[in-house]
Write a protein that binds this DNA or RNA. Sequence first.
DNA 1: TAGATTGTTAATCGATTAACAATC
DNA 2: TAGATTGTTAATCGATTAACAATC
Lengths: 214, 214
Amino acid sequence: MERLDTPPDVVIRRLPLYARSLRYLLQEGVHSVSSQELGERINVTAAQIRKDLSYFGEFGKQGIGYDVQKLLSHIEHILGLTQEWPIILVGTGHLGQAIARYEGFRSRGLRLVGLFDDDPAKVGQSVDSMLILSNEEISRVVQEQGVKLAIMAVPASCAQDVTDLLVAAGIRAILSYAPIIVQAPEGVWVRYIDPIAVLHSMTYYLARYESNLF
Amino acid sequence: MERLDTPPDVVIRRLPLYARSLRYLLQEGVHSVSSQELGERINVTAAQIRKDLSYFGEFGKQGIGYDVQKLLSHIEHILGLTQEWPIILVGTGHLGQAIARYEGFRSRGLRLVGLFDDDPAKVGQSVDSMLILSNEEISRVVQEQGVKLAIMAVPASCAQDVTDLLVAAGIRAILSYAPIIVQAPEGVWVRYIDPIAVLHSMTYYLARYESNLF
DNA sequence: TAGATTGTTAATCGATTAACAATC
DNA sequence: TAGATTGTTAATCGATTAACAATC
């Protein structure tokens, strides 16, 4: 059956988890998997997996389940992971350097092509043989390499300025580690990695638990 | 009016964002804020903020809005941030070291009290004057210091084992950076920081955009 | 007082789950 | 064939939003 609904964002955010689990299954030499089995691995119901996939097509076989390799290919295709995406990283503090040293980008369809910092003392140094450039060069690199995706690991105080710079340069999606919500125009996606906020939401439950409220 | 509903987890996850925005307002010297103004800063509707807060009490004044300092205190109290939470970190790769070097824990109600790795070559070294201990010492430290909260920055391949170790030691909440969903018993909260998954959900939109589908 | 904004209810919207015919 | 599991529909559940009386 044809599906014309545009898939909700929650569904899109689950697809990478399905893909990853399928990669692990493949490594383990598993060739076929049911929605039930896949769901148990990632704590999602079987019905949800089937419903999610139905937004994009029919990938399974009744009575059998899904061919791991095939379903993985389909999902990678849906996510646009058949191509390699150049990305840039702005901010080379402790966290930025750790990200720059991450070895896994290439195998995950991403390639770090630029490293930027606005601190003149850092510009010209290098991290893992990758040269740190000035923020003023962002625009040039983004345009030359057709970069659409940026990681922002800068202090809250300059996050909005850097966002504006990235948007002006042509970046369309930003993953921000800065502890602040930035404003970006329509058509630019911003997502946040916010470990402190996550920890603070867990202390809520810990505090409740400690006082024996459940 | 009294509210007996237990607040949904989505609400709990938004509270830290409200708290943070209020801290910024306080720094800026703003004393009073309406749900409208607060909402604009963090891209949340005014109605949602008021509804969220109503799970916990009445903190505003009709016609006026909220006293920034008071509302912040209330939210910090709700989140259990009136006490300092000891935390441990397992895994001292690039990312783990960056986390260990993070200076902001103290001011955010968290205190790193232990750093662990299972690599004998790393045990005994130190990061920022904090000694790396063997994973075998997790249980002792957790019990001695009453630690409930752990950050896990280990490879996917040992994430489940480390989780089991943490749970056995008495940890009740885990923030995991490992790219795998781990199984934990009831009453133990696990949350994930998964930058690659987030990037992969953004490539979906970039791929759509590139092919001019919207 | 008049204007503004809260807290709360009811309406709406959207996501998840259950159930089952289709079919491998 | 009998058993298993999909894809899809309808029912349920839960979260967001709109609206407004209460009130500062």
